[in-house]
Simulated assay, not measured.
Amino acid sequence: MKKIKFFIITKSVGFLINLTSYTALEKAKLQAYRLFSSPRKGKLHRENLPKTLRNTTLETFHYDGEDFQTYIWPGNEEIILLVHGWESNASRWKKLLPYLKPLGKTIIAIDAPAHGLSEGTELNVPKYAECLNVLIRKYQPKTIIGHSVGGAAIAYYLNKYQPEAKPNGAKLNPEIEKVVLLGAPSDFKIISDNFVKLLSLNSRIETQLEAYYQQKFNIHINDFSGHKFAQNFSQKALIAHDTEDSVVLIDEGRKYAKAWKNSIYIETSGLGHSMHDANLYQKIVEFISEA
């Protein structure tokens, strides 16, 4: 019943946007983009935080007119940064944290814009990467772990924000040494096409959306690909993807693994998109612990 209801709603919304496109194409385009970039769930309330996020140090950052939230589990001077995916929040790391904490490192998790306790109504990969840049400049993590769209934001960040030397020899954007991607999408074109298909949007809207992406992000949709960015990455990477992931198909993980020169690829089966698994988490710990 829920699937039928969702189908009816999405097709009805798409029909209305298509109808609008014949009289007000600009308006229809913006309606479609707002739907595309606005998460429907993942928000949290400060007075009722999940148990995982209680008893942490909360630090709020301000960027581009909005506040975004981080949670800190204190440890030594080496930092691990956790980056969740679409319609989620920092509590998604509940099952991984018991494996990371014994390492003794400081762990920091972010609520993406429009998610968790963070402000905003819109999330896209470049915006997420800009927030990561704010955190990475301050905390200088050695390891960064991303799930789903969080992984795509990491790839975008690594491509855009290369380390920059300062006059005193320090680095403005310090080099991250290790990256873990879990079920991460690569091709933005696939994400966009799936959205168009979901709502059955017409070609007029599709063309307008793709032009809008290029205008907004300053990159052609066909070049907006994490695995293309990864060809130039020097960091060590652990890339994991599940063969039964119905949200981000397995080919996306395989493309990352093929392009990322210094990477380890783990292909799982039966975990779906969530990628929660004790064996996988143990391998992540071993990867982080390697010299």
Rank of each mutant, 00 (worst) to 15 (best):
K171E: 14
G169H: 09
K171P: 09
L158K: 08
T143A: 10
L172I: 12
N173E: 13
A170F: 10
A152C: 00
P141N: 07
G146M: 03
N173G: 07
G151E: 03
H147M: 14
G146D: 03
A170H: 10
I144Y: 02
G151K: 03
K138Q: 13
L158N: 09
E164S: 11
P167L: 09
K142I: 04
Y161A: 15
L172Y: 13
Y156M: 03
G146N: 01
H147C: 12
K142A: 12
Q140S: 14
L172H: 10
Q140G: 06
V149L: 15
K142D: 08
A153K: 03
A153V: 15
G151Y: 00
N159R: 07
A153P: 05
Y156T: 01
V149M: 15
G150R: 02
S148L: 06
N173C: 12
Q140R: 10
H147D: 12
I145G: 07
A152L: 00
G151I: 03
A155R: 00
A170N: 10
Y139N: 07
G169P: 13
G150W: 03
I145Y: 07
P163C: 06
A170T: 14
I154Y: 02
G150L: 05
P167K: 08
A153R: 02
Y156A: 01
K160I: 11
K171C: 12
H147R: 09
K160L: 08
E164Y: 04
N168T: 08
N168Q: 09
E164R: 12
A155H: 00
P163T: 08
A170D: 13
N168I: 05
Y156F: 15
K142W: 02
N173K: 05
I145P: 07
A170K: 14
K142E: 10
I144G: 00
K142T: 12
Q140M: 06
A153T: 11
E164L: 11
K160S: 07
G151W: 01
K142H: 04
K166M: 15
V149P: 04
I145T: 08
Y157G: 02
P141V: 02
P163R: 02
H147Y: 10
N173Y: 11
L158I: 06
L158S: 05
G151P: 05
A165N: 14
N159P: 02
N173H: 11
P167A: 13
K166I: 11
K138H: 13
K138A: 15
Y139V: 04
A165Y: 06
P141Q: 04
A153C: 13
H147Q: 12
P141S: 05
L172S: 12
Q140K: 15
N168C: 11
A153E: 05
G169K: 10
K142S: 11
Y156Q: 01
Q140T: 12
Q140D: 09
A153H: 02
N173V: 14
S148C: 10
K160A: 09
I154H: 02
A155M: 03
Y161M: 15
E164D: 08
Y139K: 13
P163Y: 02
N168M: 15
V149R: 09
G150T: 13
K160H: 10
V149D: 15
N159S: 09
Y157P: 01
L158Y: 03
Q140L: 07
A152F: 00
K142V: 05
K166F: 07
N168H: 11
P141C: 04
N173R: 05
E164Q: 14
Q162P: 00
Y139M: 09
S148H: 06
G169F: 08
T143P: 05
Y156S: 01
P141G: 06
E164T: 12
